[in-house]
Design a protein around this nucleic acid. Sequence first.
DNA 1: TTATATTGGTTCGATATCGAACTAAAATAC
DNA 2: GTATTTTAGTTCGATATCGAACCAATATAA
Lengths: 148, 148
Amino acid sequence: MGEDDVPNYFAVFNEIGIIAQLARAAMEDQLPDGMILPHFSVLNHLIRVRDGQTPLVLARAFQVPKTSMTHTLAGLGRRGLIEMRANPSDARSKCVWITVAGRRLRNQAIADLVEAFEPVATRFSKERAEAMLPELRALRKIMDAARD
Amino acid sequence: MGEDDVPNYFAVFNEIGIIAQLARAAMEDQLPDGMILPHFSVLNHLIRVRDGQTPLVLARAFQVPKTSMTHTLAGLGRRGLIEMRANPSDARSKCVWITVAGRRLRNQAIADLVEAFEPVATRFSKERAEAMLPELRALRKIMDAARD
DNA sequence: TTATATTGGTTCGATATCGAACTAAAATAC
DNA sequence: GTATTTTAGTTCGATATCGAACCAATATAA
């Protein structure tokens, strides 16, 4: 790979970076004041995958340092959106459970997001979105694997 | 757009978010300690577009609040990578100039990045990267326009 | 012209990220 | 079975993000 090839990849990563930033901002606009993407992502994960997982498992799932997860969970706890209970099978550890309020907030956020994305969805069809997915997934997997 | 269509977009934004995160981490691995992507992005912009621009113009170019740009520029200044001089045509304002050290650091970072991306580049050809670009650009433009 | 509004930039405060150091509990070694 | 190492989680400190409030200079309005 010669120096000349950089711009190609750079351009892709640049566009991807901007889209990620815009999507994040749009998402956070739908969340209550002070809540940010990681808060929502964790709530979503607890529903889509399962709750009762430990903080460390969550940190790995999101590929963030465990100290960051501690902080994110503290924020969710303060807002009454999750509960942390002792892990019955390991006294060092805890289990994270989503509360009724957490579940409700996540569902409302998704509903609001659908609304907010309307203008984009009418201009960029779901078929086009779907068509992009395989290559995005392929690139993500390759980059993930290269992360030693 | 019905509720059922959300997952399609979600999946795309999810992949894009992960790729952005991985690319950012890989990038920051190539930068001196304490330097992060915004530092590099500004240096790069000062070379690729032009230097001598005001902080506010830069903030708009990157779509960040001006207070964030103040902070990023302060970091670059502390490291001797940019210089801020008075704006001869507006006493409220300043102009941002890249230094020799800044130019050198940016060029070295790019060279290092090429090296670091080698494993990805061999598995994901530049042709594939190029092929993704048009739809990424289209999506980015649509989202940008929808941002009122 | 002066008075008012707007603009460029910094400061401040609340919150986020994340590595290093710490504590307590478990697992492993011997 | 005790000693050592590893593991789960928090605390701490340095730095980042970003809105509100602020100051100084320019532009607009009267």
